[in-house]
Design a protein around this nucleic acid. Structure first.
Lengths: 327, 327
DNA sequence: TATAAAAATGTAATCGTTTTCATTTCATAT
DNA sequence: ATATGAAATGAAAACGATTACATTTTTATA
């Protein structure tokens, strides 16, 4: 593979001039520019990113930290990130942590060792202490899940309000016994959504029944199914269920169907995220729509600005309740 | 950020020695090794991948080319790739082409410019000519979708046989009027699956009805739904449908449900891939299971061996028909 | 035509590693 | 004590680009 020296030689100019042509600098005369371009073509030259990156002390790679790629919620955000990244000449390194701290460390090393220029963290299970320390020296943005304590900028939605509205919708449609399938409350979003749930109930003088709140270890069909199993076994069976993720809701729906019960007549169901699949279930799922793609593009924009050294403000995006067949 | 020079100075040795310690070479005496390690700790030194990569002329990055991240089929393969990659100290650059040739070109440049050490291509819509030419100088593996003409190694399943078995299963359960929802036959896998479909029918002396074969532009719920709409409108309505992707099948199922028809009584349905969702529909989906995760790990292994300069053999993995509620 | 200013180009240092080859240090045998 | 070979270390040249600064060439002006 040819290098810049050989191109310079072929064109009869210095490497500096070749570099200038490569980077579109205008202090090169038209004649030499042509000469250089011909040499490039003739030698089939492609500038090495390795050399360029070392010299420029950048990798033009953004590291995306997600718990799992299996949740379509993240896929959609990633799409947004990737499109924005590409348009600004960055690429994305996909990193699934599986909520495994060891993995996390490997990935953090990538930014420490300059293999990546910055991080978009979407992992609720991220080690905040490490992340915060890392953020002192490196560009980091939190997307969707964030932490109040650390002052790392984030883009997210108002989880409490979204949850509040979802539950209020259930109340308005006549339900009083409303269960909550929540994930582990060590995650901020889970706490916020639980608070929204309680606020809606309390506002309508409905007593919050501890037994109606089920926690799952992870997000995933199986967990939703298990949670619904527990709910159906309750003595005083709820007539509606709000799940904090479409994956959980879909698993729950499956369990209802398995028991020959009917959604929404026997049990109404609301999910969260509005993943594509939530519109394919039978019945279709009422859910809270997050602007996932937009969240991705904004996170990428924020990160790239951060990399450039700018200060960036956190952003809270809007959400929308999508009412469908399950309520 | 400290560099190797400063570490050397701090430890009172040469940079060569520091490098040796860094790379675990055994020609360093215990005493100096300790000295160096202390200096590293004290200066909080982290070796720069940029310098290392330039010197070693490698990036330790694998480029993954997928049409879209939205299809869980790919997510599962990616998991396999990533785990294998990590275990061999590689990272993965995720590249969605959206079947857009312009995008593709950007990504190909990444390997030309040494930003990536090799490519795992899963995009059926990839430009084969470019890919083949690229493969002369770079490590490339095809995963799932491949081409017979080019001699780029691949890992895949026997699509024709899998399709044959799926259709045979429908025939055995009493169906004769079997429709096929296929994707664009410009893709090899689509042609192979159509051939398997035909072989099964012909083997049972069932005439292949052209009207029963519907082609979709892409894989996605909407396309499956549309296809099923067409099928339901046929004069001589089929009693069974085989869709070449679970996404299509799930969309098709939705359409059946929308028309107050019943699966499998009115229409039996078979999908392909065995994505997680396929077990969450109502009824659950009979489908062909591909060993996606394994396919990913194998593709990664093959690519890394290829990068090391070895010749690698193509591999055809097994598949399995999962019989569930929809048939 | 001489001169100053502007434009184009070149030289060489630099980014941070790894590694070859040369040199020094150390241990062992005589 | 000395010669010898092995083990440990160091000096310096890569890898392939960018860029500050110096130099040359061109253009404009009097």
């Amino acid at each position: 593979m040819a290098n810049i020296q050989q191109v310079a030689k072929q064109a009869g100019v210095s490497v500096a001039t070749v570099s200038r042509v490569l980077n579109g600098q205008d202090s090169v005369s038209y004649k030499t520019k042509i000469k250089v371009e011909e040499a490039i073509k003739k030698l089939n030259y492609e500038p090495s990113m390795l050399g360029r990156n070392l010299r420029n002390s950048e990798s033009r790679i953004l590291l995306i930290l997600i718990p799992t790629i299996s949740n379509p919620f993240y896929s959609e955000i990633i799409k947004g990130i990737e499109n924005e990244a590409i348009s600004q000449n960055y690429n994305i390194l996909l990193c699934e942590t599986d909520s495994n701290p060891e993995r996390e460390d490997i990935y953090f090393d990538l930014v420490r060792s300059k293999m990546a220029d910055g991080i978009i963290s979407m992992d609720p299970a991220v080690n905040l202490e490490t992340l915060t320390k890392l953020a002192e020296k490196h560009a980091i943005i939190q997307c969707s899940e964030y932490s109040i304590d650390s002052d790392i900028s984030y883009v997210t939605i108002d989880n409490e309000e979204a949850s509040y509205r979802a539950v209020k919708h259930l109340i308005k449609t006549g339900h009083e016994k409303i269960a909550l399938i929540n994930s582990d409350e060590k995650y901020l979003y889970a706490r916020q959504r639980r608070i929204g749930y309680q606020r809606a109930l309390e506002e309508h003088d409905i007593v919050v029944n501890k037994d109606f709140i089920i926690h799952t270890q992870h997000l995933g069909f199986e967990y939703g199914q298990q949670a619904m199993k527990k709910i159906l076994n309750l003595k005083d069976r709820p007539t509606a269920v709000f799940a904090v993720s479409d994956l959980l809701a879909i698993g729950a729906l499956k369990e209802v169907n398995n028991n020959e019960l009917h959604v929404p007549d026997d049990i109404a169901l609301v999910g969260f995220d509005n993943i594509d699949f939530s519109n394919m279930t039978h019945p279709t799922l009422t859910t809270v729509s997050q602007p996932m793609y937009k969240m991705g593009t904004i996170a990428a924009k924020m990160l790239i600005n951060r990399i450039k050294g700018e200060e960036v403000e956190s952003i809270i995006l809007g959400h929308e309740l999508i009412i469908r067949g399950s309520t």
